[in-house]
Design a protein around this nucleic acid. Structure first.
Length: 725
DNA sequence: ACAATCCCT
């Protein structure tokens, strides 16, 4: 492997936090912390005390006691997620009926970590220890003391209880990931803390971002409280404390390329094969950016595996010079695969066989593959970007950050010391950005701004963002909300429309489409459409079965577009809700169940808002009118000459951009005169997804204010936006 | 000769 050069700094000094659940900890369960026979629990207690974090237990509790905010820096497997909430319980933070919250960016993490902690505390999940994720609230009012939840759930809770009055401590875990929800939550928590000095915040973060969080929460310069005020006597210091916990990960030796390579997919395949031939036992995890690359690499490796086993003839227990197996198997892993296909990548390899998993970013944070000792990293990621002038999100392949590459490398050090091979030179690596740009600054902000307004934050320009989004993104969001009549000329939330939109767990445009269905007499239908537009992978798409998929889709497809097609699917699915129905039609059973769950949740919201549930029966026009009333800003007209085999070209009504119908839409080959779309995304071309054919007349009828506004000056903005200029 | 990083209310 002459083309590899070991990194000059041997193991990475500090791998960032693993985003998954800390698994270190006592292996057994049972035993209880609130006990009458303490001896029973000695083994459990001893194991908890062996965790690296135990050494800093007192320091953590001291900081939480004396500081309003504590930043907790902890590496993979240090036990922070499972132990800190328990320390807080032991130290009395849940006395007097108060709760400790611990937020996670992902549902599975919230659920599994809650279950783990309940085991360690010897209580039933849902009693003293519970969790809350969308559709599932496993907790008991008055009994639950520690509550794990997604950060999205806590954000919603903030709308009902703006001071989070039930909580004594909120721990925001995996904060270094800088997801939109985490950033928003941290900004709001800072605000809450000003009115509730007793609220303690713990931010669990990777090393490189600890200072940034600490600086953000440092409020020593703000309004020193008069000494006469009783509450200030015991008020904690406004200077955040930082505490660092050592991890338990094994060292990972990093290798770099001596020279850059022109094709990283081929290079990744070559590196995986080199590792297989030269290294000892242990599975290989290869990071590439997306499905196309992954499938290409898998087929190359598959070919090699077949040649390889032909060469080996029988035998089966052969080893290479380093003692590694001679045989290997190959598995793709990305979120678009069905659960059954994903399982293949997790199943341990047969004896005398090495497993090579070629994965997307799912394997960086969301899931862990046991047994990985070698990582190959292409050092690229697919990253969302937002173009405010076009109101369009795009997905571009970008350089990975060093933090992300370190996280990937860390996947090799879970079971024993490992090795990581980066497909770039060491110099190129040093030039990579330290961290990825926070999601907040590259996202459509309409829903975020709406939520802030609903929380009474009227001047969003003055909101203390952890990373302020570009002004253009905020203006775009305000313009859209204004056009939807969710905010008025003074940029205040309208009543009741704006309020209701903020309460719905939908993007504002779709929320508007759902709310107007009351007047249009198609609430039943719009509940279904709204729910189906929320699920991403409705169709199963195994490679090489494109024809069959098209046939299946044609069974439900109608010329009115994807929304009306969803109605057909839902009606057919409701016939028996059978898995066999899903399989027969190449639909994802899981997605159908999820759509039904979302539909039920939306139905509850809609009833609370006072909509009378109505149905338009077989007439699709009201549904398409409702879609127009929500997505009028996303209208596009068939271009006179455009298009060919790649689909018809359209021109956006506002802006005149050239757009194509996404190949996944039922209207891909159709040529409707006018459409509205729920989302536009740029990959190679600019594509419209979730497309509905409409009557052009409807635009001026259902959104006169918007189209009149565009014609008059094209320039009118609500007050909040105007203030920037 | 057509497309899909990843999460979440």
């Amino acid at each position: 492997m002459a083309f590899w050069k070991p990194g000059s700094k041997k193991p990475e000094a500090s791998l960032p936090l693993s985003a998954e659940v800390d698994r270190e900890g006592p292996g057994d369960s049972g035993g209880r912390l609130v006990v009458f026979n303490r001896n029973e629990n000695l083994a459990l207690q001893a194991q908890r005390e062996r965790l690296p974090i135990f050494k800093t237990r007192d320091a953590i509790l001291h900081l939480v006691e004396t500081r309003a905010t504590t930043v907790l820096v902890g590496q993979t497997g240090c036990g922070k997620t499972t132990q800190v909430p328990q320390y807080l319980v032991e130290a009395g933070w849940t006395a007097g009926g108060r709760l400790v919250a611990c937020t996670q960016p992902r549902r599975v993490a919230a659920m599994t970590v809650a279950s783990r902690v309940a085991d360690e505390m010897g209580v039933t999940l849902g009693a003293e220890v519970g969790y809350a994720v969308r559709f599932e609230n496993v907790s008991t009012p008055g009994v639950t003391r520690v509550r794990f939840c997604t950060d999205g759930v806590l954000l919603r809770e903030l709308m009902e209880d703006p001071l989070l009055s039930r909580y004594s401590v909120v721990m925001v875990d995996e904060a270094h990931e800088r997801s939109l929800a985490t950033d928003l939550l941290l900004g709001l928590l800072k605000k809450v803390q000003r009115r509730r000095p007793d609220l303690r915040i713990i931010i669990a973060s990777a090393t490189i971002q600890a200072e940034e969080f600490a600086a953000f929460f440092d409020t020593r310069h703000l309004e020193p409280k008069p000494a006469s005020e009783a509450s200030s006597v015991n008020a904690p210091s406004r200077e955040p404390g930082i505490v660092s916990v050592e991890g338990r990960a094994h060292t990972v030796l990093i290798h770099y390329l001596e020279k850059p390579v022109p094709d990283y997919v081929k290079a990744a395949v070559g590196a995986a094969i080199d590792v297989h031939r030269a290294e000892g036992p242990g599975d290989v995890l290869v990071f590439l950016t997306g499905e196309e690359e992954i499938e290409a690499a898998v087929s190359m490796l598959q070919e090699e595996a077949e040649d390889n086993s032909r060469r080996l003839l029988g035998g089966g227990a052969g080893t290479n010079p380093a003692g590694g197996p001679e045989r290997f198997t190959v598995h793709p892993l990305y979120a678009g695969l069905s659960p059954a296909q994903q399982m293949e990548a997790f199943r341990p390899a047969p004896r005398y066989t090495r497993k090579i998993v070629v994965a997307s970013n799912v394997a960086e944070t969301s899931v862990t593959i046991e047994g990985v000792v070698y990582v190959v990293d292409c050092c690229f990621v697919k990253q969302k970007a937002y173009d405010p002038t076009r109101g369009m999100e795009s997905l571009l392949t970008a350089e990975a950050s060093r933090a992300s590459a370190n996280q990937r490398a860390g996947r090799a050090g879970r079971v024993r010391p490992g090795k990581a091979y980066r497909l770039c030179t060491e110099k190129a690596f040093r030039d990579l950005p330290e961290t990825a740009p926070p999601e907040m600054i590259r996202s459509d902000l309409a829903a975020t701004v709406l939520q802030l307004k609903a929380l009474g934050i009227d001047n969003i320009m003055n909101f203390e963002w952890l990373s302020p989004p570009p002004a253009a993104n905020m203006i775009k969001a305000l313009e859209l909300l204004y056009a939807l009549q969710a905010i008025d000329d003074d940029a205040r939330l309208t009543k009741p429309l704006g309020m209701h939109l903020a309460e719905l767990p939908l993007e504002p445009q779709l929320g508007k489409a759902l709310l107007v269905s009351g007047e249009l007499g198609c609430v039943e239908e719009m509940l279904t459409v709204s729910a189906y537009l929320q699920v991403q992978t409705l169709w199963v798409s195994p490679r090489g079965r494109q024809k069959r998929l098209d046939e299946c889709r044609d069974r439900f497809a109608v010329a009115e577009g994807d929304a009306v097609t969803a109605l057909n699917i839902h009606t057919a699915w409701c016939g028996g809700r059978a898995r066999s129905f899903a399989d027969k039609n190449m639909l994802s059973h899981r997605a159908l169940v999820r759509a039904s769950d979302i539909r039920a949740q939306l139905a509850r919201h809609v009833r609370r808002v006072g909509l009378v549930v109505s149905s338009a029966g077989k007439d699709s026009a009201p549904v398409r009118r409702a879609m127009t009333a929500g997505f009028f800003a996303n209208a596009a007209a068939l271009a006179p000459h455009g298009g060919g085999a790649e689909g018809s070209a359209f021109r956006s009504v506002r802006g005149g951009a050239t757009l194509f119908i996404h190949p996944g839409s039922v209207l891909f080959r159709a040529r409707p005169a006018m459409v509205v779309y729920a989302a536009a995304v740029r990959t190679g071309r600019e594509y419209m997804r979730d497309v509905t054919a409409i009557d052009p007349e409807w635009l001026s009828e259902l959104a006169p204010h918007f189209y009149a506004m565009t014609q008059r000056s094209g320039n009118e903005r609500p007050a909040d936006a105007a203030a920037v200029f």
